Amino acid sequence: MADKRDYYEVLGVGKSATDADIKKAYRKLAKQYHPDMNPGDESAEHKFKEATEAYEVLSDSSKRSKYDQFGHAAFSNGGGGAGGFDFSDVGDIFGDIFGDFFGGGGGRRRNANAPTKGASLKTSVTLNFKEAVFGVEKEIDMVISETCEECSGTGAKKGTTPETCPHCKGSGQVRYNQQTMFGNITSVKTCNNCSGTGKVIKEKCSSCRGTGYIRKRKKIAVDIPAGIDNGQSIRLSGKGEPGTNGGPRGDLLVTVYVKPHEFLERQGVDIYFTLPISFAQAALGAELEVPTLDGNVKYEIKEGTQTHTRFRLKGKGVPHIRNAKIRGDQYVTVVVDVPKKLNDKQKELLKEFSTTFGEQVKEFKDGKKKKWYDKVMDAFD
């Protein structure tokens, strides 16, 4: 027995390791050295057998107690370890780790007839800027599965009913015993005869062709909350595809796309706006009429206001999506708008004004474009 490695050393755990620690360590080694993962590698096969032997002893409280007391000598007469244990004892963990290799479908076994939630659906909706800020109810047109009225969802022809599958006796699963190099292993597969439903339909419904569902176009109302932003999604529980075996419907995920505003820019819950003002307003001060999403508001600027000065309109921004009573702010940047067309009298007055500063001016031909401020006000009106 001197050539045998310590079982705790093999699994890489201490003597105080819990059952969960031992199982976790074995899972890791089994995945790494399993022969199916390392075909033709004798070293990997040896390490796999060594780890499996260690697990078989340490995972059993009785065997572990004997091993802790007597070491490998406790099993020198074939009572486990040293090649005397039965590899079929670890079939359950093989099924957990290597379900695909042994026909178990991977992962832990579950009842094929258990209620299963339906698939989730995805769609999108486009809003204008103001709808996203203040919220709106939209109606979405969807094609979705509904219970077949002809067969009431059974999938069987009217007047008939599905029968219990004779292969799996209604369980939806069949068991197979496989003899492997590690012993006899029992695995579970989905029944091919009934596809795991446990039922067989001999005469299918002509409307749904045995599925129990038909596709229908349906209108779904979506309540868009105030403050939603471009790219965010809304989850509507129970509005997706129907579940199976009495399971709940899936969900509907609605992604929101927001059209940009012509003059306003959104950053989070704040709104940014550029307001053109005249030179006279900037120099002498003025009471401005500022467009906001709530309508026009008045704001007084001081004389000598410089271009690109920014001021804040508190609470004129976007509502917080989790608390619509709290709103962001609107930041307004004033930019001096130089007039492009002047009459003769205006030109003379400006020349006289410029001479008081000792400036030299030159006239240029101007176009007939509409003033920026007028375009802004027209858009809000």
Rank of each mutant, 00 (worst) to 15 (best):
F134Y: 14
G106W: 02
P115L: 06
T190K: 01
E150P: 05
G170D: 11
G170W: 08
E150F: 01
Y176W: 02
P162F: 06
T154F: 01
R108F: 12
G106N: 05
C191F: 06
G118K: 00
E149F: 15
S124I: 00
G135W: 01
G105W: 05
K189E: 15
C148L: 12
L121S: 01
R110D: 02
C148K: 05
S187M: 05
L127E: 10
K117L: 02
I140A: 14
K169G: 10
V188E: 03
V188I: 15
F129G: 03
G153C: 08
E131A: 13
E146Q: 14
F129M: 12
P162T: 08
T126L: 07
T164C: 05
N111Q: 11
A114S: 15
T126C: 06
V188H: 09
C148A: 07
Y176M: 13
P162L: 05
N177H: 03
N177S: 09
V174A: 06
T180A: 01
Q173T: 12
V133F: 15
T160P: 02
T123W: 04
A112I: 00
A132T: 10
N192V: 08
S124G: 10
E150T: 15
H167W: 05
A132C: 07
K117H: 01
Q179R: 07
G135M: 02
Y176I: 01
T186Q: 10
T154V: 00
T164L: 14
I140C: 00
G159H: 04
E146F: 08
A112H: 02
R108L: 12
I140M: 14
T164G: 08
G107L: 11
E137V: 13
G170L: 03
V143N: 13
V174D: 00
T180E: 08
A112Y: 11
I140P: 01
E131S: 05
F182K: 06
C191W: 09
E149M: 10
S124A: 13
K117D: 02
T116L: 03
T161I: 09
V125L: 08
G159L: 09
S120W: 00
G172T: 04
N128E: 14
N184P: 11
N111G: 13
C191R: 08
G172H: 10
G170V: 10
E146D: 01
T116N: 03
N113T: 14
D141I: 02
N113V: 13
E149A: 15
N111I: 06
R109M: 12
L127V: 13
T147M: 08
E139Q: 06
I140H: 01
E131M: 05
C148S: 08
G170N: 10
T180I: 04
C168W: 09
H167I: 07
T154D: 13
T190L: 06
V125N: 04
S171K: 08
T161N: 12
K138G: 04
C148T: 06
D141Y: 10
T186K: 11
G183W: 00
N193T: 14
N192E: 13
K157C: 05
S187Q: 03
G183Y: 00
A119E: 15
